[in-house]
Write a protein that binds this DNA or RNA. Sequence first.
DNA 1: CTGAAAGCGCTTACAG
DNA 2: CTGAAAGCGCTTACAG
Lengths: 312, 312
Amino acid sequence: MSAPPARAATIVDVARAAGVSRQTVTRALHDMPGINPATRERVLAAARELRYHPSRFGRGLVKPAARTLGLVVGDLANPYYGELASAVLALAAARGWHVVMAEPASAADLAAGADAVVAFTGTAFPDPAVGAPNLPVVEIDPPHPHPRRARVAFERATASAQAVDHLLARGSLRPVVLDSTTPPGGSSRAAAFVEAFRARGVEPHLAHRTSSFSQLPPGTDAVVAFNDLDGLRLLRELHEAHRAVPREVRVVGVDGLAVGEFTTPRLSTLAIDLAEVARAALDLVVELTDAAPGAPPPVRVLAHVFRAREST
Amino acid sequence: MSAPPARAATIVDVARAAGVSRQTVTRALHDMPGINPATRERVLAAARELRYHPSRFGRGLVKPAARTLGLVVGDLANPYYGELASAVLALAAARGWHVVMAEPASAADLAAGADAVVAFTGTAFPDPAVGAPNLPVVEIDPPHPHPRRARVAFERATASAQAVDHLLARGSLRPVVLDSTTPPGGSSRAAAFVEAFRARGVEPHLAHRTSSFSQLPPGTDAVVAFNDLDGLRLLRELHEAHRAVPREVRVVGVDGLAVGEFTTPRLSTLAIDLAEVARAALDLVVELTDAAPGAPPPVRVLAHVFRAREST
DNA sequence: CTGAAAGCGCTTACAG
DNA sequence: CTGAAAGCGCTTACAG
């Protein structure tokens, strides 16, 4: 009967429709005592009719609101980021925080909707939009430290060295390290492996992560994949090419994906406790928020662990 | 020097610290024209010193704000939900919406922070908290239709029948259907398979999804797993028990996980296009919001597809 | 170039 | 049991 509303209904619209004042609407909506049941029904009916939904902003301004954390992760379709996000969600809920998520492409947009941001993308988090300086940002494993952002740094040297020792001890002397950068070797995960090989007198071949095994140098007897998903792809390719893993070729992934436990062979990998990463990130949000203005941003270092499974 | 602030700094605090008015602070913060550069610097410095970050609520009240979608998914560590979430995030960003995420356990809390909710959990979405009736809710594949919620329904009968025909044609006549409910057979995904088997004169054995293969009836020659992750686990167990797949035992999963392409053997599965599911859900949010008060909630039906890979 | 006023939608005291 | 007033933090016209 009524024309479609140009804007969403407000509490005043409901009050007018029900013939009461705004505070009576609030009372009805929040099931507060001291309201005539008949009045309440009338208000609720009007609210339903108008599809009234209270404005988050009006309410947030006047009631202590949940802190809202912005979370930016690489790609949720990769279970690695999914696990991290899942851990952050659980921890945030336990603290009563809300979590706004965004893909890296629209990360800058988060500044408007979050009180702080945790970013885990493999690249640098873009500077927040104009109008939102001083947004506390925590980066997980960023390519470069930032002078005003807290960060969770990954320690890879130890685990990479263990993996390399493991490979060498089993006779793999012609290793390839796969990487996402051009030229390959620029990412910290690849760099840690390259360094470990060199420290032991072995010069690994470098190639892009998208290389198939057939494109690698003949004689290749070990491959360090860029991540576990790539490692699984490689395992599949080697199976189809009738190359025995680990006898002829050894494969190491990075990430510690649970699904690497269910393949044949199980994928050896560099793992990190993502629940711990999540906890460190949330702790840093608090620390950074409370830090003195000039103080250097806090840092947490978390180490990878080499998990030898069957592919090595 | 100054005592720690009891509350976050507001624009008035910054104005006072810089010795200007509130609108001058706004001007400096938003890089607006018509402000003395020296004044701007002074304001920005004060803002930094006070760690001032504008309130989302104050701003949201006065500027047209992004719509915020609440998204509740089962478990992000499962790439199935991760893929869906990833698709929703991308689509939402394209429309300029924000996305607040929560785990099912804290889903009710979303009512305070979202303008609408999309829920995909395998169970019924809890009724939103008091004070937020009329919150538009879109459920994906809910166990039961809800009188006021829109929903994306999954059509499983066709694909399940195809999978069953495929199994039967290859001689698997003693199938087991695994399920998450107690007793098993209560979930819609399991029910669709059971029905298809019965329609063809075969009575499948039912067991709980956590059953290991060794606990299934002797002679079992086909297993319908509850989901792909379970299917991969089963594949691994069969490999260790030296049972040939698919020759002795055929395995079907449900979800269409990408990782099922990289295992050996590749996992046959019932897949659904999650990008399409995401699009349907977001479209329903809009439809539901615009719908007439009394109108029945809109519904979209999306069908699974049987993807025969190597495990059958 | 800068400030005083009005108003966004809500809830919380306080009157009646 | 119900309503008038004040105020949360911000931006947008409008004066000066």
